[in-house]
């Protein structure tokens, strides 16, 4: 394979982002789009910086992050646990597999009204929705990773005197780690998306709520700010998970 110099890739990658901003600026400057509907990019970004330092906006971010992390954490614990259990035990597999087949393609967001009725309008219903949505990719990739562990790794460990139940933690879990982390990565992006949507549909705080409030009063600038914020949050969290991933998988090829 030919390796392209990194700087060329960076320039190539920045080009479309710069282009989007340029077209955006062009649309506003030329008067094709009125500033009320499409505020100029400079205005939006300065508004973002101005908001980021305010206490109230930080509170909104904190509310969103709390729900996001709580839901994601529940999804990781349940997903990894159930995935490993389903791969290890044919009996659990026989129960979990058909249920997952039915529930995975079900649009979880449709359950949101039911969750609101059962758990109220507070944190509980949103966290549950995030967990329900992030659960399946984590569960499925854990199951996939755990059920494709090289048989001879397990044999090697058994011959060295590892009891069967310890094999699960000492061999299957670490061997499935690349797959588990891929699932977590998908799950994390989903968590970002879902928590924002849940806050948009009904909420009194959080980034999604900021967007809805701005939309009600037709404040176009304030509609862009939470969207850019969630995009940045997604990038930062993805980067953090990437760092965790390359640490945990330092021994694995192509990690």
């Amino acid at each position: 394979m030919i390796s392209r110099p990194l700087s060329v890739n960076v320039i190539l990658g920045l080009a479309p982002i710069v282009l989007v901003i340029a077209v955006w600026q062009g649309l506003v400057s030329s008067g094709l789009a009125p500033a009320v509907l499409l505020p100029p990019p400079g205005f939006v970004f300065s508004r973002l910086l101005q908001q980021l330092v305010t206490w109230t906006f930080q509170q909104e971010i904190a509310a969103t992050l709390t729900r996001l992390f709580a839901g994601f954490a529940i999804a990781v614990v349940l997903g990894v646990g159930m995935g490993i259990a389903a791969a290890a035990s044919p009996a659990i597999n026989a129960v979990v597999r058909p249920i997952v087949r039915v529930l995975a393609p079900l649009p979880k967001v449709a359950l949101y009204p039911a969750l609101l009725l059962l758990l109220g309008f507070g944190h509980g219903s949103k966290i549950t929705l995030v967990a329900a949505d992030a659960l399946f990719p984590i569960l499925l990739s854990t199951y996939y990773g755990a059920s494709t562990v090289e048989q001879k790794l397990i044999w090697s460990a058994m011959a060295a005197g590892t009891p069967r139940y310890e094999i699960l933690f000492k061999i299957v879990l670490p061997a499935a780690m690349p797959s588990i982390l891929t699932g977590c990565r998908i799950g994390l992006v989903i968590s970002c998306i879902v928590v924002f949507l849940a806050e948009m549909i009904t909420s009194t705080d959080g980034l999604g709520h900021v967007l809805v409030t701005a939309a009600r009063t037709f404040q176009a600038v304030d509609m862009f700010v939470p969207l850019i914020t969630i995009s940045l949050l997604g990038l930062i969290l993805n980067g953090l998970l990437g760092a965790v991933r390359s640490y945990l998988l330092r021994g694995f090829p192509e990690a």
Binding site: L12, G13, V20, V194, F196, G208, L227, I230, G234, N238
Partner: peptide
Amino acid sequence: AFFNPLLMVIYPVPKAALMP
């Protein structure tokens, strides 16, 4: 290399949130 960063920026944005 051209499209990947743009898509990465768009990825965590909830598309339905663009509705308003």
